[in-house]
Simulated assay, not measured.
Amino acid sequence: MNLQEALRFSFEDKENIILCNSILGSIDAHHIAAELDNFCIHLLGSAIFSALYIGFSVGASFGLELENGMRIFIKIHRPTPPGTITAISHASLTAVSSVQKSLAEIGFPCPRVVGEPMEFGAALATVDVFSVPGELKDAHNPAIRGSIARTLAQLIQLTEPYKSVNGLTYGRFCADDTLYPIPHNELFNFERTSQGAEWIDAIAERAKTLVTRINGREVLGHLDWSLKHFRFQRDEVVMVYDWDSLKLEDELNVLGIAAATFTTTWDIPVRITPSQEESLAFVNEYEQARGTKISSDERAKISAAATYCMAYVARCEHALDSHGNNYDGSFRQALAAMRGDLYLDV
């Protein structure tokens, strides 16, 4: 499918229209396709032949095949202030690309970087090789869960020498004075949709109090370690995406976020939430791969971080579905059924 047709097809989803306009400042498929075509000709000397993938969330993502046969992945970001959870700047993207490039060179399963981040109108663009090895799999399978946990431990070990790279940003998990940060994209307005979400907020508040009371060591970790960003060959991870999520953060927060969301994808028909037992098993598998014991205080913080993360996602769900039409299998349902005050209390 050519890019213009693919864009028009994606705009059949009204959420994509909102997100595309917030990132690119336009929903004119002809204009966007022409701008991307010009960008590829300028950067890589070839026009676009076809669209392989289009997605909108924090950024606008395009998998493209060029006329010269090259396959690339362009992600376009709207610059955002440093005090937000989605802080994006030319310096931060350049820093992340340099770390990603180094990781790919030593064999870590991430896409190869094609070039440094560049301006794309008023936005910023990163360009990677479009790489889709292996297949999608269900992380409720213990073998897949263990592979994801081990790969996270490996990543944090490998990125230790890069923590001082200039331009890296902080994750700011639970760092805001308000209960929640500014949501990560234009679809979610927590203030306008607060009615009926008081029970979620109460869980988030309890969890956040504990998160901010205990400190772990600072690491350079991936803050969206969820199944939607993974591909597997047999039971091993062969590709991880979404590298603008690489940020400096407390290791215990990184692990809590991952324990809450490692099963999450909408690309295959699986339950998006882990059970409490599965989240705990993920932490245990990470501990084993890390090679050092996690203390009881650290486990309490990991559990609080996981619970807070789930509450944030539940609030995002509520913002779009305040009547609960999509409640079954949701993060709201998982929190409502939670045994104990925190998600890993099993």
Score class of each variant (00 low, 15 high):
F11N: 05
F11P: 08
E12F: 06
E12Y: 12
E12P: 13
E12H: 12
D13G: 02
D13A: 06
D13E: 11
K14E: 14
K14S: 15
K14A: 12
K14P: 11
K14R: 14
E15I: 06
E15N: 13
E15D: 13
N16E: 10
I17V: 15
I17C: 08
I18P: 03
L19S: 00
L19E: 01
C20W: 05
C20N: 07
C20P: 05
S22W: 09
S22L: 08
I23C: 04
I23H: 01
I23F: 01
L24G: 12
L24P: 07
L24V: 07
G25H: 02
G25I: 02
G25N: 04
S26H: 13
S26C: 10
I27M: 00
D28G: 05
D28V: 10
D28F: 05
D28N: 14
A29G: 03
A29P: 10
A29L: 14
H31A: 03
I32P: 04
I32H: 02
A33W: 12
A33P: 09
A33Q: 10
A34L: 15
A34D: 11
E35Q: 15
E35H: 11
E35N: 13
D37G: 06
N38Y: 05
N38P: 01
N38T: 12
N38D: 07
N38L: 06
N38I: 07
F39S: 02
F39V: 05
C40L: 10
C40E: 00
C40M: 12
I41Q: 12
L43H: 02
L43S: 04
L44A: 00
L44Y: 06
L44F: 09
G45A: 06
S46P: 03
S46L: 08
S46D: 02
A47L: 07
I48W: 08
I48M: 09
I48Y: 04
I48H: 05
F49D: 08
S50F: 02
A51P: 12
L52C: 03
L52I: 01
L52S: 06
Y53T: 05
Y53Q: 07
Y53W: 07
Y53G: 01
Y53C: 00
I54P: 02
I54D: 06
I54R: 03
I54C: 05
I54M: 08
F56H: 06
F56R: 03
V58N: 11
V58L: 13
V58Q: 14
A60W: 08
A60E: 14
S61R: 06
F62G: 01
G63M: 10
L64M: 13
E65G: 00
E65H: 01
L66Q: 00
L66T: 02
L66R: 02
L66N: 01
E67Q: 14
E67N: 13
N68L: 13
M70R: 13
M70Y: 08
